[in-house]
Design a protein around this nucleic acid. Sequence first.
DNA 1: CGGTCATTTGACGAGCATCAACCCCTGTGG
DNA 2: CCACAGGGGTTGATGCTCGTCAAATGACCG
Lengths: 229, 229
Amino acid sequence: MRDSEKQIVRALPLFSGMLEANFEAMLAGSFLQRFPATVVLFSESDLTDFLHILVDGQVELFASANNREGTMTLIKPVATFVLASALVDGAYQMSARTLTSSQILMIPAENIRVAMLADRDFAHKAVLELASCYHGVVRAYKNIKLRTGVERLANYLLVQHRRQGGDTLTLPVEKRTLASMLGITPENLSRAFSTLKPYGVKVDGPKIDLQNIKDLESLAKPSELIDTL
Amino acid sequence: MRDSEKQIVRALPLFSGMLEANFEAMLAGSFLQRFPATVVLFSESDLTDFLHILVDGQVELFASANNREGTMTLIKPVATFVLASALVDGAYQMSARTLTSSQILMIPAENIRVAMLADRDFAHKAVLELASCYHGVVRAYKNIKLRTGVERLANYLLVQHRRQGGDTLTLPVEKRTLASMLGITPENLSRAFSTLKPYGVKVDGPKIDLQNIKDLESLAKPSELIDTL
DNA sequence: CGGTCATTTGACGAGCATCAACCCCTGTGG
DNA sequence: CCACAGGGGTTGATGCTCGTCAAATGACCG
């Protein structure tokens, strides 16, 4: 692990206030590894061995039950994932796979638990990070429980539009992955785009034009409490 | 607030390891209050003033969007709720209403944040509690995303059966509330019960008989990672 | 150039919501 | 004691939402 990479991790809010000694101790036994695309990193029923930090690439957290599978969330660099699992010493609860070639730092979960007990600042930051993750899932839960597929897509497009800032937005993932994240099938995502055509949504591959934000918003009814800016 | 009630709160895992002085300081400005049934305690967009602890009664956390409403979770005594919101100083993210007459201890959120910084043990317990809440929402999210309404009902009945231990189980809430928790309408809950009749589910008001657990399980496909014992 | 895969479109059916009617129990007031 | 109103629960009819299966298109890659 190069020093530049270590600095990237150190700069994360979760670790930025740790004492240097505690940070170094925590990294003992951890390793930085590159995985190809489409590799399953762990399964939801596995015991949590490592806290993961996505340094580069893209990772999907997903879950399976009753012969079905669904995306829980997408991880973009640089971010930790499965922090909650690493802290309580149980199963991962979600499975993970790489979507693209990815570089991932894996820190033994045991080290994380030791660090929490040893380092005050880390414990406080862990509280804030967990509360933030909690509200993230709450938002996702509200999204799927209170909105239809078309409404979820419309809100997703509005969020991406605001994040990317430009006139036309580019989908950051394949449409099949987007469909799974929205909780619908790829076929229905395609139909949902058609449904949004009268609302000024022009689709050209991964490039989307929103030509009538007002109408789209009146359909989507965006909510600050669901849609993360 | 009587001493006996204070002891009940003190015994919660979240507070059990706190220093006495910190615990007392945290309670300053908090108050124990009884609310009648059907009272809205706070709305999801309100700023978080208090950590709530349900001492007696029953509380529903719910959310609204796009002119729809859905139950997020049900709180049973004795338990804290909206801990994550109290810790980060933002909106509640969920609304709350009493289902029955309820006794609730309200602790100023500011006190909670102070206690987290002052008391090591409390910070650690908050981490564990938040991680547990997080996995709770993840389970709810998987439940609604990967199962049909009938499957959710079947799994709910199996969980209640195991919790209550007896031959016949009694629904702890009105069917309309159960429906909202399962993410379906009351009408469809009624039909879901009919669908389960061939699987040995006999319904008599709030009393349910499961006469063929094996068949019901083969339909429900219960998962340790979704269904909390 | 052939093969694989993402995407799209169409046809069909399952899952579920909505609206309306009805039953039943409870509480209230005459 | 009875009539009545209100609310939870059930049932039926209807239609929207969405998944499944099949097939066609087009892009990328070996």
